[in-house]
Structure formats: C-alpha cells, structure tokens
C-alpha cells in the first residue's frame, strides 16, 4: 500500500510540472504574438506548434495516454488518420480549383 501511495505522489508531482509548463507555454504563445510580430506564415506555425505541444502534454499526462493500453491507442490512431483525411478537405477543394481552371 505504501508503494501505491508513493506512486500517486509521483503522479501528482508530474501533474504539477505539466501544469507549470502549460502556463508557461500559454504565456509564450501570447508573448510571441504580442512582441515578435512575425509574418503571418511563421506566426501561424509558431502558434500551432506551441498548441500541439500543450495538447500533447494534456493528452499524455492528464489523460494518461503515456501509460495507456494498446487497444485505446489503436482506436485513437485510427481516429487520427481519419481526422487528417477530414482536414485535407479544404486542400482538396482548392487543389481542384487550381487544376480545373
């Protein structure tokens, strides 16, 4: 039982660490927008990369994906594939426009 309690303490330390990083990353996003004034392309890239890092942190640690069973990871992998197919929709439409005209 002591092992169990120790494991949870370890968990909580990780959570607080993740929490801190999320706060820092949020401020970093806002800061990069406020101070850097990058051109729109790199600016979007920076914002999305930071968001992806934050999302990964939440998914891996708060949602325990880092130690999750293979079955759930498989379901999510399948979903992610179709998610990207969905995101390709606009690209396909505009590609069609270019070739068609």
């Amino acid at each position: 039982m002591t092992n169990h309690a120790e494991a949870i303490d370890q968990h909580i330390r990780t959570y607080l660490l993740v929490f801190g990083s999320l706060i820092v990353l949020t401020l970093l996003t806002v800061g990069s927008w406020h101070f850097l004034h990058l051109p729109i392309g790199p600016h979007i890239a920076v914002a999305l990369i930071i968001a992806t890092i934050k999302a990964t942190l939440v998914a891996c640690f708060f949602m325990h994906l880092i130690s999750e069973r293979k079955l759930i990871l498989a379901v999510l992998a399948l979903t992610v594939v179709f998610f990207f197919v969905l995101l390709l929709l606009p690209v396909m439409t505009s590609l069609g426009d270019q070739v068609g005209h």
């Binding site: 079955l71 759930i72 379901v75 999510l76 399948l78 979903t79 992610v80 179709f82 998610f83 969905l86 995101l87 929709l89 606009p90 439409t93 505009s94």
Partner: peptide
C-alpha cells in the same frame, strides 16, 4: 474506459469537421 475513449474519438471527428470548415472558409 473504453466507452469514454470511443466517445472522445467521435468528438475528435466532430471538432475535426469544424476545423476543416474553418480552414475552408479562411482559404476560400
């Protein structure tokens, strides 16, 4: 546990479609 993850998978697709709509509006 399995049930909630399947539900979240469908949620990913729901918001995925909306983000696709966003990109399409923006690019178009």
């Amino acid at each position: 546990k399995l049930g909630i993850w399947l539900f979240l998978a469908s949620e990913v697709m729901l918001f995925g479609a909306l983000f696709a709509a966003y990109i399409m509006m923006r690019v178009g």
